[in-house]
């Protein structure tokens, strides 16, 4: 009788431990999915920032090259699909630069370059911040994945871990 009671008590304790582990796994999976969504959003923003930096680089290089030309020099202007039309440079001393809020202002080539370089620096700062955020998210996600594996190693109640995609692929090589 005493053995039976002891067995039941052990069984109850095991069930409780399993239920606790199951709850922890569910909670970890939810956090992992949240980190994943956050990482995807940040990555999208980072791509936009990278493209903007590239665009600024192109504009700066183009202005730097064109300022050495003379008025009246011939240019080929792209019209899309790899096609060009002939045009003549009418005034290289004035550049129109977007200054924000849908407004553009006329500047001389030097000021235009300076303005674009300043904007590029701001973009590079954002790029760095986003990269740091992604690294932090990745570290947190790795900690969760390690804990999930630890629980799975314990062998109790982690059936949903694999279903939730926590097997290690969620963040691997994502960024």
């Amino acid at each position: 009788m005493a053995e039976e009671r002891g067995g039941m008590a052990v069984g109850g304790a095991t069930e409780r431990v399993q239920a606790e582990r199951q709850a922890e796994v569910q909670s970890l999976l939810v956090r992992l999915r949240q980190y994943q969504a956050q990482a995807e959003g940040t990555l999208q923003q980072l791509n936009i920032v990278n493209q903007a930096i590239e665009e600024h680089n192109r504009a700066i290089e183009t202005i730097k090259y064109l300022r050495d030309l003379e008025n009246g020099d011939e240019l080929l202007v792209p019209v899309g699909a790899g096609s060009y039309i002939y045009a003549k440079l009418s005034d290289i001393s004035r550049i129109i630069v977007r200054i924000g809020g849908g407004i553009s202002a006329e500047k001389d080539p030097e000021s235009a370059i300076k303005h674009l370089e300043k904007k590029r620096e701001e973009l590079e700062r954002s790029q760095q911040e986003m990269t740091n955020i992604l690294q932090r998210i990745e570290m947190e996600a790795q900690k969760i994945q390690a804990r999930l594996q630890e629980i799975a190693g314990g062998g109790a109640g982690v059936g949903t871990a694999a279903e939730g995609g926590a097997g290690g692929g969620a963040f691997g090589g994502g960024f």
Partner: peptide, 17 residues
């Protein structure tokens, strides 16, 4: 844009997109 406009001449050429 507002800050940039502060540093621009009164008679500067400005465009709206």
């Amino acid at each position: 844009a507002l800050e940039e406009l502060e540093h621009i001449d009164d008679n500067a050429v400005i465009y709206r997109g």
